[in-house]
Amino acid sequence: MIKLKKLRRNDSLGPLESVLFLDFIKGLTITMKNLLRKPITTQYPKEKITPPKRFRGKHGHFVYDGQEPPSLKAIEGFMSFEKGKSRCVACYMCQTACPMPTLFRIEAIQMPDGTKKVVRFDMNLLNCLFCGLCVDACPVECLTMSDIHEMAVYRRAQAVIHMDDMEKIGATNAAAVRNLPDRIWRDDKERETLWGKVKWNF
C-alpha cells in the first residue's frame, strides 16, 4: 500500500579505495570543477537585483488620477478627493484585516459639504509583517506595496510612514510596477549570473 524504498547503505570502503584514497580524490575533483566555474555573486551594492512585480515592500497609496476601479466610482460622491492625492475612502478594512491590531492609525473628518476626507494615515512599519493582507482587503485599489526594500532608519519615529510619503511612492514607484506584465522576473540579465540562460516559451 505504501511504496517503500529501502535504502542501499553502502557504508564501508573497499581495500582499493581505502589505500589509494579514492574517496578523497573524488571529493577533490568536484571542488576543482567548481573552482573553474564562474562565480555566481551579485556584487551588492554595485549591482542590485530588481525585485519582481509581486514583491511586497514599502506601502504606497495610489492617487486619484482617473484610473480607479468601478468599486471606487460607486462611492466617489461621498468622498472629497483632490487630483494627485490619495484615493483612500477611510473604510478601515486594512486596519481590521491586519494581524497586528495597533499598526494602522487612520483618521477622517467630515467636511462642511458632507463629504469625508482622510487626514491621517500612519503605519508603524516596525511592527509590520509585510504579509499583504491589508492590500488584499482594500476594496478600491488604493493601498499597495511597492518594491522598495531598503528601509533602514536611525530612529523609531522615522519608521512610521505617513500619507504624503505613501502618495509619492504610489504615484511613481508603484504605478510603474503596476503596468508591468505579470512575469516571474523583471530583468533577465541580472538573474543570469545565477541561472545562466533560461529558454522561455513565450
Binding site: 571542488t31 567548481n34 573552482l35 566555474r37 562565480p39 555573486t41 556584487q43
Partner: peptide, 12 residues
C-alpha cells in the same frame, strides 16, 4: 581561493 572554490568571489 576559498571564494572561487565556493562559487563566489573573495575580497574585491
Amino acid at each position: 581561493f576559498a571564494g572561487h572554490l565556493q562559487a563566489r568571489r573573495g575580497p574585491t
